[in-house]
Amino acid sequence: MATRKSASTPASKANVSKDELLAYYKDMLLIRRFEEKAGQLYGMGLIGGFCHLYIGQEAVVVGLEAAAKEGDKRITSYRDHGHMLACGMDPKGVMAELTGREGGYSKGKGGSMHMFSKEKHFYGGHGIVGAQVPLGAGLAFSDKYKGNDNVTFAYFGDGAANQGQVAETYNMAEIWDLPVIFVIENNQYAMGTSTQRSTKSPSYWGRGAAYGIEGEEVDGMDVLAVKEASERATAHCRAGKGPYILEVKTYRYRGHSMSDPAKYRTREEVQKMREERDPIEAVRSILLTGNHATEDDLKAIDKDIKAVVNASAEFAKESPEPALSELWTDIYADEIPQHDA
């Protein structure tokens, strides 16, 4: 068994077509603009409760999705808006779920942290840190049981990586050769706890070795590096070689949720990341310097995306609140068995 650090080609030299580059650029930009809008709506009181933004981490999910095929499944934590947009879910339905409206993916009954799409094989949206890891392995179990070559992407944070159920799942996933890719989105913080304060182990992906699971570390601010790693991981799983761990080094620009005291890291640290490592800027610069697109082309893309995001916000405001009768539906898949005594 070999574990290794990623040896991917730097983005500027990777073998990638213009169309692919443009697609990643658009997908990442859609997430960023969508999240900025969600932040705005939250400030206006249209979105309630917890709302965890994905800004800064866009390259992770976009790069991983680049190697996905029809029937592949994905599951993640409460920081889930980006994952839903990246797998093709409708921004309107996502935004309307954030505002708790009838037009939301869960009819307004799930909220920011709990959204699903059977059609897009998106299995949530989970509010309990780490729960999505065994659930994801279970989805992979179902594919293996059925005998297809689909894989499941199970995303979780550096904080979640310390959960006992993650270790339990690694062990069973490897025993049973489950086609699951454990994607650790290491954004260096779990709420206010930096990874230095929560673990002394040098790497998260390296923990897989204890269970016999291969893995690697990837630069999560470089969408092409993530894409290459995703290709290796999916090929490994589809070939029936069992699970794979990707520790994707990334960074969240915004607070943990909308109410974050921002006392655990410096402004300079955030600023430096934004200026030097921004994943969207990186692709933008390849597009421009490689003459794949002009400033005007990119402006037009930006305009289109803004229009999509604005339309989603409009929809999310106009969609009515769920009917009061919805309180009592979807509790059981058959009838409501309980008399209300």
Partner: peptide, 26 residues
């Protein structure tokens, strides 16, 4: 053994895996 499956002693983990398998249609 495909359908009668021994697990390690990890209730939290295998309850989660089984629930995920149910989400996945089993």
């Amino acid at each position: 053994p495909k359908r009668i499956i021994d697990t390690p002693i990890t209730e939290h983990g295998f309850a989660g895996i089984a629930t995920g398998a149910a989400f996945g249609g089993l």
